[in-house]
Computed example of a mutant assay.
Amino acid sequence: MSLPLLDDVRALSPAIRELAPLIEQDRGVPPALIEQLAELGIFRLAAPKELGGLEADPASLVEIFEELGHADGSTGWCAMIAGATSMALAYLDPATAADLLRDPRFLIAGVAAPMGRATPADGGYRVSGRWSFASACHHATALVGGVVTPAGVRLAVLDPADVAILDTWEVAGLRGTGSHDFTADDVLVPAGRTFSLAEPPHHDGPLYAFPALSLLALGIGAVALGIARAAIGDFGALARTKRNPVTGETISTRPAVRAAVAEATALHGSGLAYLLASVRATGSDARRRAALRLAISTATRNAARAVDLVYHAAGGSAVYDASPLQRHFRDVHVATQHAMVSSDVTETAGAVLLGDTTVPTARL
C-alpha cells in the first residue's frame, strides 16, 4: 500500500535537496515542506488505519525514511521521528487517538526517555519535567514525554500549548531537525492521553506485533543510510569534475577514489539489505529482536563509514560550506550518537545472540 507513497516521496526529493542548505541555516524544516509531508501522510505512517493512519509495514517505513534521508538528513530525521512515533496512537485510548488524527496537520513527536514526573490527579496526572532532543517540536500537534509515575514509567501526550520550547539546538549536525528541549510545569494530562509500551496495544494489526522499540529505532539506520547515499552521489559528481592540477585528469581516474566509491557503495547496499532482511524476519522472541537491533546499529555504522570514505577521498574540497559533503559528514555522525544505536545496545544484542539469559532485554 505504501509504494505509491514512496513514489510521491521520490518526486518531492529534488525539491527537498534544493532546500537542504536553507534548512540547515534556519535550523528547521520550512512550514511549507512540513505541510507537503503532512498531506502525503508521512506523519501518520505508523498510526492505525481504522483511525485515519496509514499503518504501513516496517519495510516500507525503512524505504521511505531512507529516501527522505537521501533528500536531506534533517528532513528525513524529522519525518522518521514523527512517522514512527505515530505508532503511539495504537496504544492510546481509541477515541483520544482518533481525535488527534482529525487534525490534517497531525504530527506527533517528543521524547520517550522518562525525564519527567507524573503525580496522580483526578482524571489523570500532573506532569512536570524537561525533555531533550525533541526533534520537530516546533511543528508538533502533540508532544510525547516519558514520565515516572508511582506505578512505573508511562508516556504522556502533551498539548504543545501547555509546554515551553527552549532554543537549545546549537549542534554539529542535523541542525535542521530543531531538536530543542521542552518543559512542562504541573500540566494536567488526562489518563486517556497516557500509555505504556509495556501494555498491549488497542489494535492488533501486524505492525503492532512488531517490537515497539525496534519500530521506533529502525528509522535511525534508514535515515543514516539515506545520508550515505546522498554523500556517495555528491562525491561521484565531484570526482567526475575535479581535476588534478598537475595531470589535468579528473580525480575519478585515481585508484584510491575508485576504491572509496566502491567500498562506500557496498557499505550502503549491504547495510540496507541487512536492515530490510531483518525487518522482514523479525519475530517476538529475544534472539529475533536482538538480530533486528544489531541490523539497525550496523546500518547506522555502515552509513557513517561510507560517508567517511568519500569525505576523505574528496580532499580539501569537502571542508567548504558550499560542499554538501561536509553537511553529510556532520549529519551522519550526529545520527550515530543516538542512544538507540549505542554500543550498549549492540553489546546487549551480542549477549542475547550468544545465549546469555541473564542480560536485561527490555531495551531491545
Rank of each mutant, 00 (worst) to 15 (best):
L51S: 10
D103W: 05
A97C: 09
M115I: 14
G83T: 13
G83H: 09
I108Q: 12
R117W: 07
D99N: 12
D72C: 05
L51F: 06
L68F: 03
G124C: 09
L45S: 09
M87C: 12
A71S: 08
A118R: 10
L45N: 09
T85E: 14
R102Y: 03
D99C: 13
A97D: 05
A88D: 10
A82N: 07
M115W: 13
E67S: 14
A121M: 15
V62A: 02
L100V: 15
E66L: 15
G124W: 01
E67F: 14
P120R: 15
E55F: 01
S74R: 02
L100Y: 07
A82S: 07
D57Y: 01
G124E: 10
L51E: 06
L100F: 06
L54R: 04
C78P: 03
A59D: 12
E67D: 14
A84N: 13
E55K: 05
L40T: 00
E63H: 02
E55C: 08
V62F: 01
A118P: 10
R44Y: 02
G116I: 15
A112V: 10
E39P: 06
T96G: 14
G52H: 02
A88G: 10
E50I: 00
F43S: 08
W77Y: 03
S60I: 03
L101W: 04
R102E: 11
L101S: 09
A113V: 05
G116P: 01
A109D: 01
R102V: 09
L37E: 04
E63D: 07
A59Q: 12
T96K: 15
G73S: 03
E67H: 11
D72S: 07
G73D: 04
G116S: 07
H70F: 09
A46H: 01
G83S: 15
A88I: 04
I64A: 07
L40Y: 00
L92Q: 13
P120F: 15
A90Q: 11
W77R: 05
A113S: 07
A38P: 10
G123A: 09
P114N: 08
D103F: 06
E66N: 08
I42H: 01
L92F: 05
F106Y: 03
G123F: 08
A79D: 12
G69C: 04
A82V: 02
L54N: 02
A46P: 03
G123R: 09
D57L: 03
R105S: 05
L40W: 00
L89N: 11
